[in-house]
């Protein structure tokens, strides 16, 4: 590990930061979209479903390029964000988080949607007869019951965000200390002679983080499942 320069440690810190922010920020929207797709019928449902899944199917570079076109300083959304809030996403770590969040979104939504579909709607109507408003039914019955799916979806999204490369490097490039995450750092180290050792260490760290996330999700998932099965 000692052979790792500050640049590589920056990549590790940045990867964790980008993935965590991407997961946390997309979670409320992910729950909302999963709920709508699982429970509601509305015009444009299929369109929404397709849009959510698009990043899974498109080449990541294409997604990255579309983000650049939309959120670049000259892009329609990017220009608006800059003029109203002074926010720039392109070539910033926030842009990396946006790219990672979008790439991870389909996986998150799928896991949570399955959990919503598994909740017995009869429990929800029972809660209604006991005096719970629709919002209370959601927060006190539905949400606790989909918790395992939310946790699984979040871990999956986090892992996907940690590994995101194509869309990120296209949208925010590979700037050490700003947008260089573990995958792009590994890529950069492999491009220069003698960088193999640093790359290998980053690979080991990457594997370690992935295993830790998996173990954490198993542990939390098992606890929540026991609680919910009601034994």
């Amino acid at each position: 590990m000692t052979g790792l320069g500050p640049e590589a440690w920056d990549a590790v810190r940045l990867s964790l930061q980008v993935s965590l922010v991407a997961t946390m920020a997309s979670l409320p929207l992910g729950i909302l979209v999963a709920w709508a797709l699982a429970r509601k019928s509305f015009p444009g449902r299929q369109v929404l479903n397709a849009a959510v899944h698009l990043p899974l199917i498109l080449p990541p570079v294409v997604t990255g390029y579309l983000l650049l076109v939309a959120f670049g300083r000259q892009g329609p959304l990017g220009a608006m964000l800059y003029e109203t809030f002074g926010i720039t996403l392109a070539f910033r770590w926030t842009g990396a988080a946006l790219a990672a969040g979008i790439m991870a979104f389909p996986l998150m939504v799928r896991a949570i949607r399955l959990a919503f579909e598994a909740v017995d709607p009869r429990l929800e109507s029972a809660a209604g007869t006991l005096g719970a408003s629709k919002l209370q039914v959601f927060t006190t019955v539905t949400l606790p019951l989909v918790a395992p799916g939310v946790i699984a979806g979040s871990i999956l999204a986090f892992a996907k965000a940690m590994g995101e490369f194509g869309a990120t490097i296209t949208f925010v490039s590979n700037i050490p200390g700003e947008t260089q995450t573990i995958p792009s750092a590994i890529y950069a180290f492999l491009q220069v002679p003698g960088g193999e050792n640093a790359a290998l260490t980053l690979v080991a760290i990457s594997v370690g983080i992935a295993l830790a996330a998996l173990a954490l999700s198993e542990w939390v998932g098992a606890r929540v499942a026991t609680r919910i099965r009601g034994a």
Binding site: A126, A127, G131, A132, Q136, L145, I228, G230
Partner: peptide, 28 residues
């Protein structure tokens, strides 16, 4: 529904699996 004050006992118990018996009883 939630303002009708009708206590409904269904064919299946429909207890909330994530709550204890006490929490189920005090849910309302």
């Amino acid at each position: 529904v939630h303002r009708r004050r009708t206590g409904y006992v269904f064919q299946e118990h429909r207890l909330f699996p994530h709550l204890t018996v006490r929490e189920n009883l005090l849910y309302s």
